[in-house]
Lab assay of single mutants.
Amino acid sequence: MAEQVALSRTQVCGILREELFQGDAFHQSDTHIFIIMGASGDLAKKKIYPTIWWLFRDGLLPENTFIVGYARSRLTVADIRKQSEPFFKATPEEKLKLEDFFARNSYVAGQYDDAASYQRLNSHMNALHLGSQANRLFYLALPPTVYEAVTKNIHESCMSQIGWNRIIVEKPFGRDLQSSDRLSNHISSLFREDQIYRIDHYLGKEMVQNLMVLRFANRIFGPIWNRDNIACVILTFKEPFGTEGRGGYFDEFGIIRDVMQNHLLQMLCLVAMEKPASTNSDDVRDEKVKVLKCISEVQANNVVLGQYVGNPDGEGEATKGYLDDPTVPRGSTTATFAAVVLYVENERWDGVPFILRCGKALNERKAEVRLQFHDVAGDIFHQQCKRNELVIRVQPNEAVYTKMMTKKPGMFFNPEESELDLTYGNRYKNVKLPDAYERLILDVFCGSQMHFVRSDELREAWRIFTPLLHQIELEKPKPIPYIYGSRGPTEADELMKRVGFQYEGTYKWVNP
C-alpha cells in the first residue's frame, strides 16, 4: 500500500466541504435556525453545542446559521458558553472563530407547556436576519415526558411559513410498544414523516454505516452471507464503567431499553437485511423493517440478565456495585447486563442465532459485530482449526478484520490463527472521521433520513421486546451478580454456547 501524504486539518475539512456542497440537498446560502429545546441540560452542553461548534469551526454548516437555545432556566448566552465550552476542545488559535460562533447564538427562556412562551420564541426567531423565511431545525434534547406539549406548541407557534421545518427526537422513544405508539401517533398528527428525525446516534458511527458497503459492494461476501456458512452472529456493546452516581436515570430504563432495543437491534438489521433497491432512505429502511418483521418476540429462556457488584480487589469506582450508587433505588432489580438470542425467521437466516450482548462495568470498552462461520467440513488438521470470524469493530479503534487459519512457519503443516486486517487509523491517516452527532446533524440539514429511525421500524423493535420488558417488570427477577471489570455473568457464556457459538479464547485482536 502506497504511503499517504499527511494533510493538514484545513485540507481534510476542505475535502469534506467539497463532498457536502456538491450535493443538491445542502442549501449552503439559505438562512437556517437550529433550535435546541432543553438548552440547559446535560445532553445540550456535552453533545449538541459542542457538535454545532465543530461543524461551524470546520465550515460545514450553511453560511447563515443561527443557534437558539430554549429552556425553562433563566440563562444568558454567557451562561450557555460557560457550561458548554469546556466540552468544545477549542484551541487558543480558534479564539476569534469561537467569538464568531457565540455571536450567532441567542437564548430564550420559557415554559414547555405555555403557548405564550412559544409565541415569544417565534418572535425572537423572526427578528433574526431573514428569520421569518429561514429553515428551522428543532432538536428535542428533553425528557420524553414533555415531548407531547413541546411538539404541539412548536407546531402551533414556531413553524417557518416559507422555509422547511424538521424536528429531531432523542431516544428513548417511549418505554414499550404502547407508549411508543402513543408518542408516534401524537407526533405524526403534527408533522409529516419526512419532517421527523428520530435519532439513534449509533447509526451515525462510521463502521455501522460501513456495514452496507461491506455487504453490498464486495462480491466475495454475497455468496457466504447466509445460514449455510454463518453459524452465529454476535452483536456486542461493552462499557468498562458503571453508573457513577447517575444511576437514578438509568434505573428508569435499564440496559435493554438503553442499548439493546435500539443500538444493537439497528446493527442487527444492517447485518441481516436484503440488498435495498438503492441507497435512498426509504429503500434502506424498507429492508430493515422486513428483517424486524421476521423476528419473533424474545423468549425468556433465551435471556440472561445481570447486575454488577463491587470488586473487592478493585480501586475507586470498581469497588462499588450498582446498588451502592446513592441515586439507585434500594434493592433495585434493574439489569445492567443483558444477553438475548433472537432468530430472523426467513430463508437466508433460518436457524442462525443472533446474540445481542450489552452491559456496564465490564472488562473493556468495545462495540462490534462478529460473524462466526461454520467449521470446515472434512477436517484434515486433527481438530487444530478454529472457526473463521469476520469482525466489524465499531469502537474504539474502528477496524474490519477476518480471523482465519494460516500455516505456522516451519517444517510442518501446523495451522495457527491469524488475521486479515483493515484498521482505519492506519489505512486512512488523512481522513477526519466525523463524530456520530456531527454526521447525523449534517444529515438533518441535508434532509437525508437514511440513518434515522422510521415509525414502522420503531414499532417493530418495541413489538419484539415489550413482552419481555413487561414480564421483567411484573416478576422482578433478581439479576445474576457479576463482578465489576469482569466479562459479565458466566451464564451468558453458557447461553451463547448452547445456541452454537464457540468461544476459543486463544486469539485476541490487537490494534496495530
Rank of each mutant, 00 (worst) to 15 (best):
P172F: 05
L98I: 05
S84C: 14
A90R: 03
D42I: 14
V5H: 11
L130Y: 09
L130S: 11
N135S: 05
Y202F: 12
N126H: 09
A6K: 07
L7I: 12
P62K: 06
S40C: 07
D30V: 04
V77F: 08
I196D: 00
N64F: 05
I196W: 00
L140P: 00
V146E: 10
K89A: 13
D194G: 05
L7E: 08
E170T: 10
N226W: 03
F102H: 03
T151M: 03
E99P: 02
R120W: 11
F21G: 06
R74D: 10
Y147W: 06
T236Y: 03
M37Y: 05
S188C: 13
I199G: 03
T51Q: 06
L96I: 15
Y197V: 00
A44G: 03
E206L: 05
Q22F: 15
L60F: 07
D100I: 14
N218C: 01
V77L: 07
E156P: 03
N229P: 02
D100F: 14
L235Q: 00
D24I: 08
Q11E: 13
V169F: 10
L211G: 03
F102V: 02
V169L: 11
T76N: 08
R192N: 13
I167T: 03
I224S: 12
D79T: 05
N135L: 02
E239V: 10
M212H: 05
L190S: 10
R166N: 02
L61I: 07
F241R: 13
Y70C: 05
L75I: 14
A109M: 12
L203S: 13
E193D: 04
G242T: 09
S180L: 05
F191G: 01
D79Q: 11
G69Q: 02
H129T: 10
Y107W: 05
K238D: 15
R198P: 01
L20P: 11
F241G: 13
F26L: 03
I220G: 02
M207Q: 12
D251R: 04
V213G: 12
N122P: 00
A39F: 01
W54A: 09
L128C: 03
Q4N: 07
A116Y: 07
I167Q: 00
Y197W: 12
Y107C: 07
N210L: 02
A149E: 08
G242Y: 02
V208K: 01
Q119Y: 13
V150F: 00
L61S: 00
T243Q: 10
F66W: 13
K46G: 03
S117K: 03
Y197M: 01
I220K: 04
D30G: 10
G247H: 09
L130Q: 13
N126F: 03
F87L: 06
L183I: 09
F66M: 03
S157Q: 11
G245K: 10
R74Y: 11
A134H: 05
D100R: 04
D251C: 03
F221H: 04
I230P: 01
F66I: 05
P223H: 13
G23D: 15
R182H: 09
V146H: 10
I234N: 13
N153I: 03
H186L: 08
A25Y: 15
F26C: 09
Q28T: 03
Q22M: 10
R104D: 01
L75N: 04
Y249G: 15
R166K: 04
G110P: 00
P240L: 10
E93A: 08
A6T: 12
R215G: 01
A25P: 09
E170L: 03
I80G: 02
S132R: 10
I48N: 00
R215P: 00
L55E: 00
I15W: 05
Q209G: 13
I36V: 06
V213D: 15
V150C: 07
K82T: 08
S184T: 13
S8A: 04
Y107L: 09
E252I: 04
Q119I: 07
R198K: 01
R120H: 11
N210A: 03
N122V: 09
A2K: 15
G69K: 00
P92I: 11
W54M: 11
K152Q: 11
F101P: 00
S180M: 02
E63N: 09
I154L: 13
F216I: 02
D181S: 04
R246C: 14
E18N: 10
E3K: 11
S160T: 10
Q119P: 04
V146D: 13
A103D: 10
S184M: 08
V68E: 01
G174N: 05
Q11G: 07
Q4V: 07
C158A: 05
A149M: 06
G59F: 02
P62Q: 02
G38T: 00
K171C: 06
L128D: 01
V213F: 05
K205T: 15
V68Q: 01
V77H: 04
K152Y: 09
P240V: 10
S106Q: 05
W164K: 06
P172C: 07
T76Q: 08
Y118F: 14
W225Q: 00
S188R: 14
V77E: 07
I35H: 01
V169H: 12
L43K: 13
A115W: 06
A231I: 03
F191T: 00
K89E: 13
L98F: 04
L55Y: 06
R175T: 07
R182W: 10
S160W: 02
G23A: 15
E18Y: 07
A109R: 10
L16V: 05
E170D: 09
N229I: 02
L190H: 09
F191R: 00
V146N: 09
Y197K: 00
N126I: 06
E94V: 05
R9V: 09
S117T: 05
K205Q: 15
F173V: 03
K238T: 15
A6N: 13
K82R: 11
S157Y: 08
A2Y: 11
Q11R: 06
L203H: 15
R182K: 08
M159T: 12
G41R: 11
G163V: 02
S188Q: 14
